[in-house]
């Protein structure tokens, strides 16, 4: 009987110890961020591998470096790329089905001209599955049209070495 009471007191005491630790951490600064009002720092996002995108051309940012060699299409384990060759070497259509992509980087590492890179888009959300089939040529035109000053360019030394920081290559000096 006495043992049972003593056990209960001990249990209550260790509960209080736990509660005091929880209370102390409750009053410490918040670790999480409130998404719509705050976003994760660019420093952290620089190494994140988002959906792939075409790199900007060396002379004309709107021009892709892709030569339609189909190496990435063969390398992709998820069969999510489709490149249609145009009249010249440049592709007429570049479709990318992100819903099948596992972000392994086989296409990026196998591309002979460095025409592909990982983007850092972490907030990609769609309502339908069809919207996930991305037209990368249109995306490239859109990104090239944006003035370079307004782009948040990640610092060069933070990007992983195999993903060259081609964002800054195409920009006018």
């Amino acid at each position: 009987m006495l043992q049972a009471i003593w056990d209960n007191i001990k249990g209550l005491y260790s509960l209080l110890v736990g509660m005091s630790i929880t209370g102390r951490y409750l009053l410490s600064p918040v670790e999480t961020i409130h998404y719509p009002r705050q976003v994760v720092a660019d420093e952290i996002m620089a190494s994140f591998r988002g959906p792939i995108q075409l790199t900007k051309g060396k002379k004309d940012p709107a021009q892709t470096r892709c030569i339609s060699c189909q190496m990435c299409v063969k390398a992709c384990p998820g069969h999510c790329l489709s490149v249609t060759k145009g009249d010249t070497k440049a592709p007429a259509q570049w479709l990318y089905d992100f819903s099948y992509c596992c972000l392994c980087g086989a296409c990026v590492e196998t591309c002979p001209t460095g025409a592909l890179e990982f983007s850092h888009k972490v907030y990609l959300v769609t309502l339908t599955r069809e919207e996930l089939i991305l037209d990368l040529l249109a995306d490239l035109q859109k990104r090239a049209a944006i003035l370079p000053e307004s782009q948040p360019v990640p610092t060069a030394n933070l990007a992983p070495p195999t993903v060259p920081d081609v964002e800054s290559i195409g920009e006018p000096k």
Binding site: S47, F48, R49, L103, C104, E109, L158, P160, P161
Partner: peptide, 23 residues
Amino acid sequence: QIITGSRLTMSNFRFGGVCADGD
């Protein structure tokens, strides 16, 4: 994430090395 590029299904091992260096 710096050496693997992802936060959950990490895969930075390649045959004969790793895909990204630590900075």
